[in-house]
Design a protein around this nucleic acid. Sequence first.
DNA 1: CGAAGTTTTGAGGACCTTCAAAAGTTGTGG
DNA 2: CCACAACTTTTGAAGGTCCTCAAAACTTCG
Lengths: 257, 257
Amino acid sequence: MADRPMSAFSDEPTLDGYIAKLEKRSEISPETKVAFCSLRAQRIELASHQDFIREGDAVDRCSFVEEGLVSRYKTMRDGGRQILSFHLPGDMIDLHASLLLVADHGVRTHVPTSILTVAASDILALAADYPELARAFWFDTLVDAAIFREWTLNVGRRSARQRVAHLLMELAHRYNQIGEGDGRRFPLQLIQADIADATGLSAVHVNRSLQYMRGERLIRTQGRMVEIEDREGLARLAEFDDRYLHPEGPRQHPRID
Amino acid sequence: MADRPMSAFSDEPTLDGYIAKLEKRSEISPETKVAFCSLRAQRIELASHQDFIREGDAVDRCSFVEEGLVSRYKTMRDGGRQILSFHLPGDMIDLHASLLLVADHGVRTHVPTSILTVAASDILALAADYPELARAFWFDTLVDAAIFREWTLNVGRRSARQRVAHLLMELAHRYNQIGEGDGRRFPLQLIQADIADATGLSAVHVNRSLQYMRGERLIRTQGRMVEIEDREGLARLAEFDDRYLHPEGPRQHPRID
DNA sequence: CGAAGTTTTGAGGACCTTCAAAAGTTGTGG
DNA sequence: CCACAACTTTTGAAGGTCCTCAAAACTTCG
């Protein structure tokens, strides 16, 4: 059920979901928590397949996924799109907006999505006053960068089948991290064209790669749900190693007691 | 701390080069500067094509390029290598080591290189005590992530010629940023196999892509020097837009005067 | 129940890879 | 300073992975 108190239907926009994520990684003092939770957040409800931020937009708010699914992407002149990352409930999408002035990529929804935004200046002020939070934001950015690195490897050096398999493994893991599914079943709220944009492939070839994985009894799909039938096999195919997702949290701050 | 020009031949290892980079981006107070410069750094001199950090190594020091050229990379089981980023003199390679415990990628040199390392715990302590520095480190990590995003687009959606062109443009810009060359000529201290590893191509096809660019009078090469003959043409081919390198520095901290 | 969107199939072709060898360059020791 | 080995670049040829285009089958949703 709702082990996450966060809900798209609560009246007051709160960042509890993100705090919960931070707390999984390292202890946060009550004062810091109060300070963070007192940030004035705005909720934005978006339909499916809506652009929330466009490349080149000036940005002065950080955003956070309350419910739904969004991706960040860049586009080429010929219309080609590369998805750079997916963001699940509890993820900060846009933490970098606190320091960078212009979006160098777009953000769009894949399902009806509820997003909370906070003024970038508020985030910055908080980071300046609470070193604990500054470290948490920095860590978040580091994990972000680690995921981008893995994606560069994915599109740069893996075969089509491996790329798709790797994406499925990442999503299964991340849904598991936020308490959805058991690391085997998860809602794949993407059409095959989205998977193509994320893996640098054509939609047709994504389809064929999925068929291969179904044929090999690696995965099963029913509607929007994916079930990983043979987790070891899929991980071996994808050369998936979950360490890049850094579930363990940051190195602890050296205490000077 | 005396102002000393960065040099591979100075006796005392100092991080002046990095401070210079930070100062280009935003003002740093004298006390902060002193604190940073008093970090105990170790110098390591490496020959060409040496592994400095291997994937999976436990890391507890952050490293910084004093002189030379290094790359970060990941490898596949079949030996395939994907270079994730290059680091020029003045760059922090490894800032993420301050919070992450294990290297999720290797680091190796491409020419004889001098690297300075600092204890991760010292960096963390400094970040906790000097919000200015915490913000600078965070910004550095954000720019890192922005470059990874651009590389994901590069290997994911661009053609071979575009990928190689884009890499050359990036290097020309970055050498220019650190005062080497004029944005047109720069030392390409890589063999074609390295370019292949960075762009997700085969060495043979990199060779053919370079020949194409030479044939179109976009670039000229003489030994290890590359000269961009037609900057507009190369930028148009690569769809290069330098904004992802974020030369302008971070959003300023809101002053509460 | 029809319209729009999505997945699947087929066929042909482009881009890039692999393998192999020749040509050119760099570095080293005698 | 030359000779030779090791490395790097270049060329050629054959082949595979993945793409594009197009249409059919299936699903979702108003």
